[in-house]
Design a protein around this nucleic acid. Structure first.
Lengths: 338, 338
DNA sequence: GAAATTATAGAAAGCGCTTTCAATAACCCG
DNA sequence: CGGGTTATTGAAAGCGCTTTCTATAATTTC
């Protein structure tokens, strides 16, 4: 494995020149650069990552810590996120470093040992301790979502509140009055935002929220099933359901059939759709009406933001709320006549 | 951020001694070590990762490259794998480095720049080029699954052939004769193994395989749905179906209901179950008979193997085929009388 | 008590790169 | 043609750690 010294000796040049030639500095003669590049290719030279990192002080990698207790990361949408995130960074020769931990210690350690140049904060809580800690350390990070914070921070979010406001309005305009919400975990910010949108739409019509119709759950098939069952167990069954994830909706669908109810006729359903490659809502038996925001794009965009922060961009310039599409398909229809 | 030099000066010791004290070398006085450790804690000293890596020549990380064209990595089971893999490594202060690429170049580059100390090879093909390349480079790796190779290599596999042999036998013994197989992609080794098991069981009964009942597909809900629809379109519908993933089975379930068929009564179904945390097969409307092997454990075990290889273990000692449980639940029953 | 161990700590040489600073050669201008 | 650029390269100093090789002091051995 040739190193810089070998290459320099082979060329009869100094290491400095070779390094400069390879790294695209303008102060090196065009012909020299050509030779260097050719020799590098010939000797199959690759700069040692650790050495370069030590010299430059940059890790060339961004971190993502998997909180084991956080089942949000255990659901399929995370794969799509990761895929987009990784691909975008790889295109710029940057890595993603994954680790697993509970609590803030790991963030501190990774930052202070310069293992990574920044973090992405996944599944932020309503008030997220990680954001506070990293802000205080002045270490770069981008939040996937938002949180309540004292200082500005970089984030990429989707218009959750607006999406669920629109979705609820749609159902209300179709005449539905008993609308259920199967939401994400109560301590996550996106669930809060969606709940806000839901409430707002009800309030517009002067309708009070019915706590029996509002549920928080993990993003699993099981939970979607169990909650749907529960919703239809009593006498006050909903005529429409808002659901926070495709996986939950899959469970919901399963239960609805058992109840002998047809989606889009007996019960209207709107699901949030992260655009997962393994579950296409347009191909459901009854094509789903959805609020749609591909999570893969979140991964890509957050990667770009992280890079920008690394290049000195200010936190204020790295804040983005992506729109959410409301796509109406067959799973929604006018409320049944009483 | 204190570095080694600071710490040494603060203590009035040499960097060498401090380094030795911190790294647990026996040649340092117990009292000295105590002082060093205390000072390190006090000054919040953390050795710089890049510097250490450069000095030791070890990356302290293992790599996983996401092949973008490979939709196997786009399915939920990958999250569970990754979770187990990462957790196990994190426990030993090792990272996982993710990158995205097509082809072998990335493996070469990451190996030669010592970005990682080894790779895990996911979703191996029947004859996998990555395995051949890494073997030739004498770079450590563990295959998640198996492949046809010229030389021995480290792998963690599950007993796919045996599992599908047993599952098919079960169906045959229940009197089924028209058994369909919804398998994984044709070029993957695990799909090949499962097909072999399937064929073997049929052969035991002297039954010829019917190509119309054998399908290869990606591990998506859609495909499960589409193929099930196709299976029941003709006149020669199956009475039992073997399915390669929970997600496909979800699609299958969806279609079966549309066909007006009840799982476990009209049609027997056995699904492979990776033990995904977001989809529990025991909670299906009709609890599923499954071949079960938690993929999270694969992640953990492969992490251990990689570490062992790094510590000089021979490839031959790092080969494991984990058993697959056959769990009989309500989705299988005797074949309907003709 | 002298010679030989052993315990402990320091000096210094890397690891392989980047980058500042200095040096030289080539070029420009009036 | 001489002083002043400008283009190009090299020397060398790190980056922060590990580790070999020495050196010294303390201890043991007969």
């Amino acid at each position: 494995m040739a190193n810089l010294k070998d290459l320099a000796e082979h060329l009869g040049l100094s290491q400095a020149t070779v390094s400069r030639a390879l790294n695209g500095y303008s102060t090196v003669n065009a012909e020299t650069r050509r030779k260097v590049q050719e020799a590098a290719r010939l000797l199959n030279y690759r700069p040692n990552t650790s050495a370069r990192r030590l010299a430059t002080g940059r890790a060339g990698a961004f971190g993502l810590v998997l909180e084991q207790s956080d089942n949000l990361l255990n659901d399929p949408h995370f794969v799509d996120f990761l895929s987009g995130f990784t691909q975008e960074l790889a295109a710029q020769d940057l890595d993603v470093v994954l680790t697993s931990a509970e609590g803030l210690a790991t963030y501190r350690r990774y930052a202070s040992t310069s293992k990574v140049d920044g973090f992405v904060i996944s599944a932020p809580k309503v008030k997220d301790a990680r954001v506070a800690a990293l802000t205080e350390m002045a270490f770069p990070f981008v939040v996937h979502g938002q949180t309540e914070a004292d200082a500005p921070y970089a984030f990429y979010d989707i218009a959750n509140e607006r999406a669920f406001l629109d979705a609820t309005r749609l159902l209300l305009n179709l005449g539905h009055r008993r609308i259920a919400l199967i939401n994400g975990p109560a301590d996550t910010m996106f669930a809060r935002q969606r709940l806000d949108g839901f409430h707002k739409a009800l309030a517009e019509k002067g309708l009070p929220p019915d706590p029996r119709l509002i549920h928080h759950a993990t993003m699993s098939e099981d939970e979607g099933y169990a909650l749907t069952r529960q919703l239809f167990a009593g006498s006050e069954a909903p005529t429409a359901i808002l659901c926070s994830s495709t996986l939950q909706t899959l469970g919901l669908t399963r239960r609805l059939r058992e109840e002998g109810l047809e989606m889009g006729r007996d019960v209207s359903v709107i699901s949030h759709d992260d655009g997962l490659s393994s579950m296409k809502t347009e191909n459901f038996s009854v094509p789903l009406t959805v609020t749609r925001a591909p999570i893969r794009e979140a991964g890509q965009e957050i990667a770009r933001m992280l890079v920008a922060l690394g290049n000195g961009a200010s936190v204020e310039t790295q804040q983005k709320t992506a729109p959410v599409e409301l796509i109406v398909r067959a799973s929604t229809s006018a409320a049944p006549q009483e």
